[in-house]
């Protein structure tokens, strides 16, 4: 049995969703054109994941096993729609950036995966920590990937477009804009994801070797 801290931190490295579990690749590839898209998607997913984990683990002894998936989906979809409406009302620009991928959180397999594999078997506290850890790990991964692609692709970093928090990292003089379109195009997403996987494998291999030595 893991300690509560481990329950939380496992999602940040050991089981970080897009890189280690290789789950939720559709939003990972689609919305990471910018840093803002990355963290926005990540936080929206985290909210849904935490809420659905709490409710599902609270109801785990009531939900009949035969209709559990249907029940999970109803719960998840409810929180997704709530997220969508709230984002439309309060963060309209972010909601437009993410577009159709917010409703698509319903079919994000990380969420149903955690519901089925974790929340339906563990207590509320643990499920909350699990959801928070996995969700923040997902956010972290998407934000790093988004920042990498945006930086290489456009030389800028959009922190939060609504508040005008953009940074131009690579200046190219007056009137010229840095644009490496490949990186913000879909193929660039695969290349950057591959590079991130390579980096993660390198780091864990190094740390495993230094532990063994």
């Amino acid at each position: 049995m893991k300690t509560l801290t481990q329950e939380f931190t496992k999602g940040l490295w050991e089981q970080i969703p897009p890189f280690r579990l290789v789950l939720g690749l559709c939003p990972t590839l689609a919305v990471t054109k910018s840093l803002e898209g990355g963290w926005g998607m990540g936080l929206a997913t985290t909210f849904v994941l935490v809420c659905s984990n709490i409710f599902i683990s609270a109801l785990r002894n009531v939900i009949p096993p035969k209709v559990r998936i249907a029940t999970f989906i109803v719960i998840i979809a409810t929180f997704v729609v709530i997220t969508e409406l709230v984002m439309k009302a309060y963060t309209p620009m972010l909601s437009e950036t993410l577009g159709v991928f917010i409703p698509l959180i319903v079919v994000n397999c990380i969420i149903l995966g955690r519901a089925e594999a974790f929340a339906s078997k563990n207590g509320v506290g643990r499920s909350l920590l699990d959801g928070l850890g996995i969700g923040l790990g997902f956010t972290l991964a998407l934000a790093v990937l988004g920042a990498l692609r945006e930086l290489l692709g456009t030389g800028k970093l959009t922190m939060f477009a609504q508040a005008n928090l953009d940074l131009t990292i690579i200046p190219l003089g007056e009137g010229r804009e840095f644009l490496f379109k490949f990186m913000v195009d879909p193929p660039g997403a695969f290349v950057c994801l591959g590079a991130m996987l390579l980096l993660m494998n390198l780091i864990s291999e190094r740390s495993a070797r230094s532990k063994a030595a």
Binding site: V67, A70, I75, I82
Partner: peptide, 20 residues
């Protein structure tokens, strides 16, 4: 169970929709 869950979900959604 399904009915109750769906009913509560609907209730929550209509509330949020009314607010937003």
């Amino acid at each position: 169970v399904l009915g109750v869950v769906a009913f509560l979900a609907g209730l929550a959604l209509s509330g949020v929709k009314g607010m937003t």
